[in-house]
Design a protein around this nucleic acid. Sequence first.
DNA 1: AAGTAATACATAGAATTTATATGCATAAAT
DNA 2: ATTTATGCATATAAATTCTATGTATTACTT
Lengths: 118, 118
Amino acid sequence: MYICLSMKSTNLYKGSLVTIILKLLNEHDKMYGYEITQKVKEITKNELQLTEGALYPALHKLEAQGLLDVEASKVGNRVRKYYKLTEAGTKETVEKLAELESYIRNMRALVNPKFRNE
Amino acid sequence: MYICLSMKSTNLYKGSLVTIILKLLNEHDKMYGYEITQKVKEITKNELQLTEGALYPALHKLEAQGLLDVEASKVGNRVRKYYKLTEAGTKETVEKLAELESYIRNMRALVNPKFRNE
DNA sequence: AAGTAATACATAGAATTTATATGCATAAAT
DNA sequence: ATTTATGCATATAAATTCTATGTATTACTT
């Protein structure tokens, strides 16, 4: 019904979608797109709502890059596409998580002088 | 000499440039562009190097939005453009910092189950 | 029973942000 | 004398995400 749920007003989340997807798949083994959007809403208490216009293309790209495998599954008359990490995807997840920690460390240092000691 | 210093390989920093600029100006009162790039390098121990192709347009935009004031200053035969926060800029800084904290909280919850309890 | 909301996929085009690659010029260091 | 650092700038490309759609099934509500 044509209502678009967006990544809030801030654009800090730009660049973090892949990290989110990989980490959730790393934790849950196998998920489908819609399930990912709901899980993100739940964990962030509605503060972050992924847009489908960003999520689905991202999933397709990760699959094309060999980081995800897909498996279609019929539930009633409706199709779900379950995604799971490949081996390469698992490695990439580790890298992305390290990048996130580095990002958070640097941003904290930039905005909070008391985090600047080493 | 045409060497371009970039925001590293990750794209997590997308969307955080404005936050960085505002916070540094909030702390240092008055800074010029090149000085900002050096301060960021120093604080992040070279992990983050702002590109001038992103920084200067961002400064111009913040000025056009009324968040920054500019004052040109000659040092020898060279011109520096000092930027400082306007009142609106100071308010915006507070908002941007709150958004960053919210972002970090949500991302931590997403990637680390132990941060999910409230 | 009918209408609405939720589930579940998808895509095209716009918008936003940043990177790349330049350009010019002065001052300092080798 | 030459290179590096300082200091500004911009245009185009690249990357990511948003907006606005579209289709279809299932569940819920009145």
